[in-house]
């Protein structure tokens, strides 16, 4: 007789979705976070993705689920965290958030955020203004996510970036991650002043 392991509640199962459009590097960002969670933090983790037939443009998303127990259903269910880098992605997915889920948007690209608690930060603009290219907005977002949620340590994220980045992009990606941490720090500080943040 097999013992009936009743672990269905998955008390520490955490579901997140990185969403936007093709070309914003969401699947790549997802692989970095997956690496950080699975290899450097020892969690069970699964990452799935969904995208259109085209390599650029079109809706794109990357789901990450992690848990210290077994992960049965590999796609995200009710979201603990949603990152939306386009208005369309935000509109499509914010209803999947848990009531206390964290919604993170690019404040320049999503100009009509839903009527709920939301953190809007200029990922893409920060990338362009500080590093001269919008392509690392995804890594800035990762820095912010890690800083706000502590789902992995900063060191784990850095190690994962090092292991997944192509050589030519490594330095840029590391600087982008730092920018993300700075951005999150400022956000936390300003929230402390104005309202009690629930992070």
């Amino acid at each position: 007789m097999k013992t009936r392991k009743m672990d269905a509640e998955h008390e520490d199962r955490y579901d997140m979705r990185l969403s936007g459009s093709g070309g914003q590097g969401l699947v790549f960002a997802g692989t970095i976070l997956t690496e950080a969670l699975g290899i450097y933090e020892g969690k069970n983790v699964s990452q799935t993705q969904s995208y259109g037939p085209e390599a650029r443009g079109g809706a794109s998303r990357s789901d990450i689920v992690f848990s210290s127990g077994d992960i049965y259903y590999p796609k995200a269910l009710k979201l603990d965290l949603l990152l939306a880098l386009t208005q369309e992605a935000c509109d499509t997915y914010y209803l999947n958030l848990k009531d206390d889920g964290l919604l993170l948007i690019d404040s320049d690209l999503v100009d009509q955020p839903p009527a709920r608690e939301v953190i809007g930060l200029p990922f893409t603009r920060t990338a362009r203004e500080n590093l001269g290219t919008p392509v690392v907005a995804n890594i800035i977002a990762l820095g912010v996510i890690v800083s706000l949620t502590k789902i992995v340590s900063k060191e784990s994220l850095i190690e994962a970036i090092k292991s997944k980045s192509p050589k030519a992009m490594l330095d840029l990606n590391l600087r982008a991650a730092e920018l993300g941490f700075d951005l999150a720090r400022k956000e936390k500080r300003s929230r402390k002043k104005t309202q009690p943040a629930r992070i």
């Binding site: 069970n44 990452q47 799935t48």
Partner: peptide
């Protein structure tokens, strides 16, 4: 497709 593209530890 999901399995093919899915990453897991």
């Amino acid at each position: 497709e999901v399995l093919g593209h899915m990453r897991e530890k």
